[in-house]
């Protein structure tokens, strides 16, 4: 449900589709600056875009240092969640009993507001990086496991019959047929996980930490430095988009390579 199916754009329409969002973003920034200039809203409530950009440039070294902490924690959580999620989904394809017993429970856990567990990880693992990494892993593991399981179960039935008549072993069928069919679902789960790891790490940094972009934002809000909040949010969004972009790029590369 990420893009509306506006199928088959004409070349001219495609140019318009690139220019229009840029124009609207530019208009919004100009409008924002005009409002701030015209109404004398205090800078502590709403700093203008120019002030935010100046703040972003001035705090760049500190932002990069904080981003390093947040990104590193997020990447570890992302890697662990991916491995555990894929391992569990793989087990599901080899044991129907396991799948029938565990999968419905995963679906239900997916529906509960898991963010409520964040303080529990602090009680268990303290206020340092391990608790945030564990919480972010906990948040992002479920979409990976569920999507991969869906993908592995969605293999074309004809392809499976072909494998059987060719006398392929279960493992050969898995590697040569199920995995390629599952890649699309797997990457859909990974993309959801990219957003969730950052949410997990940042929420962890909100409630307990002394470093990272979440801590930077919370500290700025405590001192009423709103321009710093915006700068921190921009840095955080860029980190999130970069991870998403990397995963989306890896998906394109892998799919092209596989199907060739």
């Amino acid at each position: 449900m990420s893009t509306p199916p506006d199928t088959a754009l004409q070349p001219r329409q495609r140019t318009v589709a690139i220019i229009l969002p840029l124009v609207s973003a530019g208009l919004l920034l100009v409008f924002w600056q005009a409002v701030v200039n015209g109404t004398r809203i205090p800078e502590a409530i709403l700093p203008g875009p120019l002030v935010v950009i100046a703040e972003l440039l001035a705090s760049l070294p500190q932002l990069l240092a904080e981003a390093r902490v947040t990104v590193l924690d997020s990447l570890i959580a992302f890697a662990v969640a991916t491995m555990v999620g894929v391992a569990l989904a793989t087990c599901f394809t080899f044991s129907a009993t396991l799948r029938d017993a565990v999968h419905p429970n995963l679906v239900i856990v997916q529906l509960i507001p898991k963010i409520a567990f964040a303080p529990l990880f602090v009680v268990w693992l303290g206020v340092d990086a391990p608790s945030r990494v564990a919480f972010a892993t906990f948040l992002s593991f479920f979409p990976v496991a569920l999507s991969t399981a869906t993908g592995l179960a969605a293999t074309d039935i004809n392809a499976l019959q072909l494998c059987r008549s060719l006398g392929a072993s279960r493992w050969q069928t898995f590697a040569a047929v199920r995995v390629p069919f599952a890649l699309g679902h797997f990457f859909a789960g990974l993309k959801i996980a990219t957003t969730l790891v950052f949410i997990g790490v940042v929420v962890g940094e909100f409630i307990s930490s002394n470093a990272g972009l979440g801590h930077y934002v919370i500290l700025a809000s405590a001192s009423g430095a709103t321009a710093k909040i915006f700068a921190g949010l921009i840095a955080l969004s860029l980190c999130g988009l970069a991870l998403y972009g990397t995963v989306a790029g890896a998906e394109r590369l892998l799919l092209r390579w596989w199907w060739e």
């Binding site: 990219t194 957003t195 949410i199 940042v202 934002v217 921190g232 949010l233 955080l236 969004s237 988009l241």
Partner: peptide, 8 residues
């Protein structure tokens, strides 16, 4: 939608 909006 792709950014960790919760941070706001």
């Amino acid at each position: 939608q792709l950014t960790p909006k919760i941070a706001v």
